[in-house]
Simulated assay, not measured.
Amino acid sequence: MTCKGRQLPPLADISILLKSRDGTLRGNLQAMDTKTQGNTIGFLVGTVNFKTYARDKYQLTVNYRGKHETLTLKPSK
C-alpha cells in the first residue's frame, strides 16, 4: 500500500478487511507483521484460502479515519 505525497499515517489508524471465497479476514495494521519503506507499507495477512484457483477474486478494503477504498484482486498466473 502506498501513501501519496505525504508521510505515512500511524499504523494504528489503518485497518483492513479482506474477503475471499473461504472467509473474511480483518485487522489493524499495527497488530500485523509490517514493513515500511518511504511512503510504502507492506503487510502480511496470513493464509486466505485453503486452495487458490485462477478464478478466485479477493476484495481488499482499506479503512483510514472514516474513509475507505475497496480493491478487487486476482491471483497472478
Rank of each mutant, 00 (worst) to 15 (best):
Y53T: 11
T34Y: 00
T72K: 11
P10Y: 13
L17I: 07
K77E: 01
T34P: 00
Q37S: 14
T72R: 06
I16N: 02
L17K: 14
Q7T: 07
T24R: 10
T24E: 13
K74A: 15
I16W: 11
V45L: 03
P75H: 00
P10C: 09
G46F: 08
R26Y: 04
L17H: 10
L29N: 04
N39T: 13
G66R: 05
G5E: 12
A12W: 00
K67C: 10
K74Q: 14
K19H: 11
S20N: 04
K57S: 14
V45R: 03
N39R: 08
Y53G: 00
T40A: 09
R65Q: 11
T72W: 00
G46T: 13
Q59W: 08
D56P: 10
F43Q: 02
F43H: 11
R55A: 13
V48E: 00
R26W: 07
Y58C: 12
S76Q: 08
T36S: 03
K77R: 06
V62Y: 07
L60G: 06
T34F: 00
P9H: 12
C3K: 00
D33A: 15
D22I: 06
K74D: 02
A54Q: 05
Q59L: 08
S15V: 07
G42A: 12
L17P: 05
T70G: 01
M1Y: 14
H68N: 12
T40I: 08
T36F: 03
N63G: 10
Y58A: 15
F43I: 08
K51E: 15
N28S: 12
M1T: 14
T72N: 09
I41C: 07
L25Y: 01
P9T: 07
G42D: 13
R6F: 03
N63T: 14
L71P: 01
Q37G: 09
L8E: 08
P75G: 01
K57I: 13
N28P: 07
L8P: 06
G66Y: 11
G42E: 13
K19M: 13
S20M: 06
G46M: 09
K4I: 15
F43A: 09
I14E: 02
N49C: 13
P10V: 15
Y64I: 05
L71A: 10
G5Y: 10
D13P: 04
R6T: 10
L8T: 12
T24W: 01
F43M: 07
F50G: 12
N63C: 04
Q7G: 14
L8C: 12
N63I: 10
K51F: 14
K77D: 00
T61H: 01
G46P: 05
T70H: 04
Y53C: 05
E69M: 10
T61M: 02
A12D: 09
L60I: 04
T61R: 01
A54R: 08
T70F: 10
Y58H: 13
R21I: 08
N39V: 02
T61K: 02
L25I: 04
R6W: 00
T40Q: 10
G46D: 10
T24H: 08
G23S: 07
S15A: 12
A54W: 11
T70P: 01
K35C: 03
L18N: 09
P10H: 15
L29I: 11
H68R: 03
T70L: 02
G23H: 08
K4F: 13
K35V: 02
D56L: 07
L44V: 04
L73H: 05
G5P: 06
L73G: 03
C3L: 03
G23R: 06
G38F: 01
M32I: 03
G66V: 02
P10S: 15
G42K: 11
G23I: 04
R21Q: 08
